Simulated scan of single mutants.
Amino acid sequence: MDKELNFTIGKFSKKTGVSIRTLHYYDEIGLLKAQKDPNSRHRLYGEDHIVKLQKIVALKFLGYNLEEIGLMLMDTSLNLSLQNTLLQQLKAFEEKKQHLDKVLKANSRTISLLDSQENIPSEILINLINNIQSEQDQRTWLEHFTSKEIADKVYIKSEEENLSLDREFIDLSREVKRLVGKPFHDPEVQELANKHLQVSLKYVGEEAMYAFGKLEDEQIGDFQSMMASPYTEEEEKWLDQVIEYYMVQNGMYNPNSNENNVK
């Protein structure tokens, strides 16, 4: 360290902008050791302390903890070790940023939905949040089995479009829970099936729907398993049967044919 010890801890704190409490702690753990005045025992600092503190502050800003910083400061090849660890830090921060982006997106949409909808059942709300969380996995799957263009059309929508679709799915989910168990031919039930297909088509789009028609049932099942459902097993089974009945009645599906497509 510099033999010119011109700063008491108070002056050093003001010059560097680092609190006295923090400087005490750095001294105690050996990260930035002050010199002690032999008479007063006060902590004293010099210009070399400033240089070292600047390194500490910079490395801390980059995300390193104090233990890592201590080891790095002892490394004579700091630049080499810094490059290697920065690459690891960059990857970790990118992953954190992706997670934070998902959280912010989920928060924003949930707040907007709660502002515009009253008494949303908790299972429906949690379902929407879970689907936002798994959206990237869904998109990656869709790109792999269809194309990037189709995946972009499904998942790149304006916030206004997403909120509108969320509201429609909330209304549909409420209707499913209200009507579950009613006969398939009931006019209200058939209207529910029609709305469900229309909203699904609006969300997915015709190109994706056509691409889904070419996939194996097992592949479609894998995709559906990524999407959280607000329904119980009983509700899910009833809804599937309602939609199948509707499609048969409207000539959209023939259970005895191998070539079934939504018109």
Rank of each mutant, 00 (worst) to 15 (best):
K3R: 10
L82C: 07
I126R: 08
I111W: 09
T76I: 01
E188A: 15
E118H: 11
K52I: 05
R43G: 00
T232C: 10
V199L: 07
L80I: 13
R174C: 11
F7M: 09
K11M: 11
Q190E: 15
K157F: 05
F169E: 13
T16Q: 11
G46Q: 09
L5T: 01
L172N: 06
Q241E: 10
G17T: 10
H196F: 15
Y246W: 07
K33I: 15
R174I: 02
P230W: 05
K177P: 01
K96M: 05
I124G: 05
D37E: 00
F12Q: 10
M247S: 08
V154G: 01
E143W: 02
S200T: 15
S158L: 07
K36G: 09
K157T: 10
E123S: 11
E168P: 01
T22W: 01
E244N: 01
T8L: 07
M72P: 10
K36I: 07
K195P: 10
K237V: 07
N127M: 12
L59M: 13
N39H: 07
L73I: 00
L44K: 14
I129P: 03
P230S: 12
K60Y: 01
K177S: 08
K105E: 13
V154A: 01
E118T: 11
L128Q: 13
T232Y: 03
I156S: 09
V248P: 02
D137F: 12
D2L: 06
A211I: 09
I132V: 06
L59Y: 10
F212E: 04
K3S: 14
T22Y: 06
F61R: 05
V176K: 06
G46L: 12
Y210C: 12
